[in-house]
Design a protein around this nucleic acid. Structure first.
Ligand SMILES: [Zn+2]
Ligand SMILES: [Zn+2]
Ligand SMILES: [Zn+2]
Ligand SMILES: [Zn+2]
Lengths: 142, 142
DNA sequence: ATTGACCTTAGAGTCAACTCTAAGCTTATA
DNA sequence: TATAAGCTTAGAGTTGACTCTAAGGTCAAT
């Protein structure tokens, strides 16, 4: 049985974060001491590590929540449900990649066009490009 | 002289956003009617469009703020200052790209490993991989 | 018995960039 | 003149994932 700080040390999450995850239903301590201290057993630890792994991959807490409910009763969930979550995340990632590649491209073009030197910016081609506004839009949403 | 909704129509920003930008010092109306209505002249419009272009590229409002202060007095700023801002943004974008590519890679591997079928998830290799925790960390910061 | 480290809670604060609301003027059209 | 559309402000709310604080209780070691 681990105390919260021990679980924190083991998972690399902070105690704050563990309590935060508990508040959001991701993790819990199956036991409490008389004084109310959280105590985590083996199953709790495995669940916490599952959460940590999923978070590291980039799943949102909402995604992780869904994965956890599959996890607690695998027999009543299908592989398809799991791939749906994963595919949806991949779609998101791909969309962001698109956007970032477009930004990268624009920024590289801008940098190539500017001398980057110490003289004044009255002739700066980056400023001119921003002024002209003929740059393609790279940002769709925040 | 444009009213705020006209500037909004012209730039594709909303009137709300224009006021928000004003509050943050990015845009302003050089005139106000007696009743307090904002009126934008040609220079105001050009500035607003500059902001819009920079935002579309992906610059933060803080970046844009710096670009604008260069813009109002180009003779006392250098090309280097402009490239510094741009390069810094590119560095950020590259870092995020790295992270997303790593997420993409992990998700693709997961998806390849799972049958995605309608049978139950007791054997699901995605779930197993999350359980095993041997996936590389892709997320560094939010 | 007294440190000091650790634990508890509810709840507030952080970040960025909006987004929206309420309450009340103003202006244009019919 | 009346209705609607549009403008003003200060300020609150949104999103996601934390991050921190205050005020206090607990525990192991000296
Ligand atoms: Zn130059
Ligand atoms: Zn330049
Ligand atoms: Zn399967
Ligand atoms: Zn599967």
């Amino acid at each position: 049985m681990l105390k919260i700080s021990e679980l924190a040390a083991k998972t690399g999450l902070t105690a704050h974060t563990i309590r935060f995850y508990e508040k959001h239903g991701l993790i819990s301590a199956s036991e409490r001491s008389e004084a109310g201290y959280r105590y985590y057993n083996e199953a709790d630890i495995r669940r916490a590590e599952f959460v940590k792994t999923a978070r590291n991959i980039g799943f949102s807490l909402e995604d992780i929540s869904q994965l956890l409910s599959i996890r607690v009763d695998k027999t009543s969930h299908s592989c398809q449900e799991v791939t749906d979550i994963t595919q949806h995340k991949l779609d998101e990632v791909n969309a962001k990649l698109e956007e970032l590649r477009s930004m990268q491209n624009t920024l590289q073009i801008l940098l190539k066009s500017c001398c980057g030197g110490p003289e004044n910016a009255t002739h700066c081609s980056i400023m001119e490009a921003l002024e002209a506004g003929d740059l393609k839009k790279t940002r769709s949403a925040a």
